[in-house]
Amino acid sequence: MAISHASPGQVIDVSPLGEHLVESKTIALFKSSDIEVIRLVLLAGKSFPPHKVSGEVTIHCIEGAMSVSAGGVDSSLRAGQLIYLEANVLHSVNALENTSALVTIALVK
């Protein structure tokens, strides 16, 4: 089944999920020729394993708390905080609490 992405001009709600976070899943919100935006949902103790992407990345913590390991440096993010990662940097994410985040990836052509 194809993933339904937002259309240009469509409003996307990225408010905290609150009590619905535990039943929510990670979802790609949209993908264009230049960027992809994903709502990442991780429950406490879960992680996204080490990986690289060819474009620059931002991770904006919407709710909860997470640790981001990138290039050998560990950083903690809480709601309202954002981290920028350079392209091709090995990174991973670990949820310290039930967490949702907005991940933006610059797509390299």
Rank of each mutant, 00 (worst) to 15 (best):
A6L: 10
V57M: 01
K52M: 00
G71L: 05
H5I: 12
L40R: 01
S4L: 11
A70W: 06
S69P: 13
R39G: 14
G18T: 10
A65H: 08
V11C: 06
S69G: 13
E36Q: 13
K46Y: 13
K46Q: 15
S75T: 13
R78Q: 09
S47T: 03
L21M: 06
K31Y: 08
P8V: 04
I59D: 08
S32G: 11
M1H: 11
S54M: 14
K46E: 15
C61F: 12
V14P: 15
V11P: 03
V37H: 00
V103M: 04
I59A: 10
I3Q: 11
V37E: 09
V68K: 02
A101T: 07
I83T: 06
E56F: 11
V103H: 00
P8K: 02
I59F: 09
A70K: 09
N94I: 08
A101M: 11
L21C: 07
G55A: 00
V103Q: 01
V37M: 07
A70C: 06
P16T: 04
P49H: 03
I27M: 14
G9Y: 08
I12M: 00
L29D: 01
E97A: 05
V22H: 03
S54Q: 14
I12Q: 06
T104D: 14
G80V: 09
G55V: 05
E97T: 00
E23K: 12
I38A: 12
S24A: 10
S100D: 03
G45F: 06
S33R: 02
D34H: 15
L17T: 07
I35V: 10
G55I: 04
A2E: 15
V57L: 07
V89I: 07
H60I: 05
A106F: 15
S7P: 06
A2M: 14
T99E: 08
V11Q: 04
V11L: 04
Q81L: 00
G64T: 10
D13G: 11
A101G: 14
L21H: 00
L77K: 05
G55C: 05
M66K: 06
G45V: 02
Q81N: 08
S24N: 03
I35E: 09
L77A: 02
L102Y: 10
L21V: 06
A65W: 04
E23V: 14
L107H: 07
L107C: 02
K25A: 14
I105A: 04
R39T: 10
A28K: 13
V68D: 06
E86G: 12
V14Q: 10
G9S: 09
K25I: 15
L96A: 04
K52V: 03
A95S: 00
N98R: 07
V57H: 03
A95M: 03
D13H: 08
R78T: 08
S92K: 09
H20F: 12
S24D: 04
L90T: 15
D13Q: 00
I3K: 05
H91N: 02
G45W: 05
S76N: 15
S76D: 15
S15K: 08
L17N: 04
K109L: 10
I27E: 14
D13Y: 11
L43A: 13
S75L: 09
N94T: 01
S67E: 07
L85S: 02
E63L: 07
N94Q: 12
L82A: 08
L102T: 02
R39Y: 13
L107T: 04
S67W: 06
I3S: 10
Q10C: 01
V57G: 05
N94Y: 11
S47Y: 00
K109Q: 07
A6E: 12
